[in-house]
Design a protein around this nucleic acid. Sequence first.
DNA 1: GATTTTCTACTTTTT
DNA 2: GTAGAAAATC
Length: 819
Amino acid sequence: MSTLFDLPQHGSLQSAGNGSAGRSGPDPEALLNGLNPQQRDAVVHTGSPLLVVAGAGSGKTRVLTHRIAYLLAGGVHAGQIMAITFTNKAAAEMKERVVDLVGRRANAMWVSTFHSMCVRVLRREAKTLGLSSNFSIYDADDSRRLITMVARELDLDSKRYPARTLAVHISNLKNELLTPEDAAEQAGNDMERKVAQVYAAYQRRLVDSNAMDFDDLIMRTVQLLQGHPAVAEHYRRRFRHVLVDEYQDTNHAQYVLVRELVGTEATDTGVEPAELCVVGDADQSIYAFRGATIRNIEEFERDYPQARTILLEQNYRSTQTILSAANAVIRRNPNRRDKRLWSDAGDGEPIVGYVGDNEHDEAAFVAGEIDRLVDEGIATFNDIAVFYRTNNQSRVFEEVFIRLGLPYRVVGGVRFYERREVRDALAYLRVLDNPEDTVSLRRILNVPRRGIGDRAESVVAAHAEQERISFAAALRKAAAGEVPLPTRSRNAIAGFVALLDELQAVAAESDVAEVLEAVLERTGYRAELEASDDPQDATRVENLTELVTVAREFTETRAGAAPTTTDSGVDPSAESVVAAVLPAGADDEDAADLPADDSLSAFLERVSLVADADSLPESGDGVVTLMTLHTAKGLEFPVVFCTGWEDGVFPHLRALGEPAELAEERRLAYVGITRARQRLYVSRALMRSAWGQPMTNPASRFLTEIPEELMHWRRIEPERAAPQVRSTWGTRGGFDRTGADSAQAGLAARGMRSTGRKGWKDTVAIKLSAGDRVTHDKYGLGTVLSTEGEGPRATATIDFGSSGTVRLMLIGSVPITKL
DNA sequence: GATTTTCTACTTTTT
DNA sequence: GTAGAAAATC
């Protein structure tokens, strides 16, 4: 069914690749075949910095890979090229495609994620920075644990200063390249002062543990380059071409890193700035919440005054109908550079809309429609994807799909490497690899239970602090009886220390899989799970077995004479987890810098940096793909179902009052719409249970932003608005009342609900102020714009989004709940 | 120190 | 509805 979209673009890629992959290198001109004029410009541009603004489906990857191939064909050595992506998958794909175009010599390029690239540099330059090259890499969970410990030691109220919040703040500071001292200096309120305090202690503890978190990897590389001109010059001399993908997702630290790598002017020794090419689309920036700043792409021309900008607006993916919808939605975002995607693929099918009574009805519609499309031969299961805003929305679909026997696969959710058992097992390995890794050590201290409780742990921790020794050292002293502890605790600790020594001995002479096996056996971890009658524990055992397989594959691949490509020797049917962990392109000239002789370190680094192991199903599995909108970025499907388009669900509740967040949600809608090639469905539900309670949600404002003429409504909201509901909550019918009347109606509804929850009196009066978010039994979700008057005369003007802006009296019992 | 119970707070998440 | 943490109890 994809014939409609088999445009010349796709064919020519193949021919350029196959025709020119010979040893002598491809003919540069052949690489331009089948490119449109803008793409061609981007490929051949030389000299000044280049920004390629690549709309969805405009052939961004083609431009990048062809540009690299073109450079290579023009005499640039592969070793002079650095290409940076955000995911390992994107890196592997890019390398593979360049290899297809120019052959194996492309393997000498550095194509990696920001983080891998930094690890590589940091390990190599460890001496310069005075750190040990076998540092551990802490992920978000490790770093949150460490922050919890630090906050507890500082006696912070864990309610007022939750570890999560502290972690976010510290991460933001690092993304802005601010040190603990900077943070302390500019702290303006209580939270910021505490954050600065925690940050300082946390950073000290990281260093003590010989560890870096993800943000450190970037920040410390920047510090390295800025603080050591000779090092910076070395890399600048070496990498003459730097390419950055998904530039809209870079944060400030990454932006500075790129600038330092490339250089802005010639060095004293005459090294000119490298050539920079960044590719991205501000409209697809959906990671601001992780620190990405759209500013970097918007201000590129200011950052690099010589820059040339090329716009790619021709889309090779979707029908014009789909693109028109995407354009119409994204146009509502303020302050954006206007960009209009167009296609010559024709209008295609209208966008199908559906309004379900509830989420089950919505899911049933989606399932039924999928069934029909496949039945009628319009699509295969593979062609179809279902998107939702949050992971928990997948459940309804799974239920219906199972009931109807539709094959599906949920992408994302709890990832393999985030599972408790996997992390526990890896923590053991990490302690064996880096005994100073306090977070991992404390994680496994009493896992499985061995009689070392909180009490004993804090005594040891306090002792470590007092004596200014590491936790590991204090633990050994405790085992030797040099720390005041009950005998029982002391014995337990002694047993644990002996166990670690024993495992250490195994680690010294075995490969990773064997060490892992020894850990699972000798700690009794596996035995405990096997003895359990909790069905979840059976899955845990399976996951651990899977982890052993991953380790074994890893060792085998490394042992086999220098693998040449990412996919060599990998059973295509093997779990994606395995594939993701295998060493990628280990045959470049720098392989010697890597911890090649130490398979444990190498394995741990791999699993830390390749956490997106549950990667996407390869096509051909014959399943429908279910995923969040975020996960969908970068993918495409012939048929796409965008579900849950309700204010409060999508856009998410938390974004309703914040213009910046709302804009990001809208970009998410844009991403979702533009994933579809031929058919797009958009649906919502009138009622949906959230947090155990049924909620009525108004239509998503994004839904109303799609021009009516592009839509074909399969089912719309019934005339009488909200349907009769027998539950103890909700409105009774959609009568068009005045504010006062609706307050009366709400009284009844509210009363019934309230008795069940917090009692009647609570609901009689409500205090609101501008910015508050509320739900109204009739109007749904809204944001308070302003309040007027006091006491019984108080009123509030509330923006209910698509339900309009309403002024309500706040007397008696308005059917309003403050969120 | 372990186990059970209660409470609470809920995005998205490339590394 | 549920997972993770804190508090209460054994």
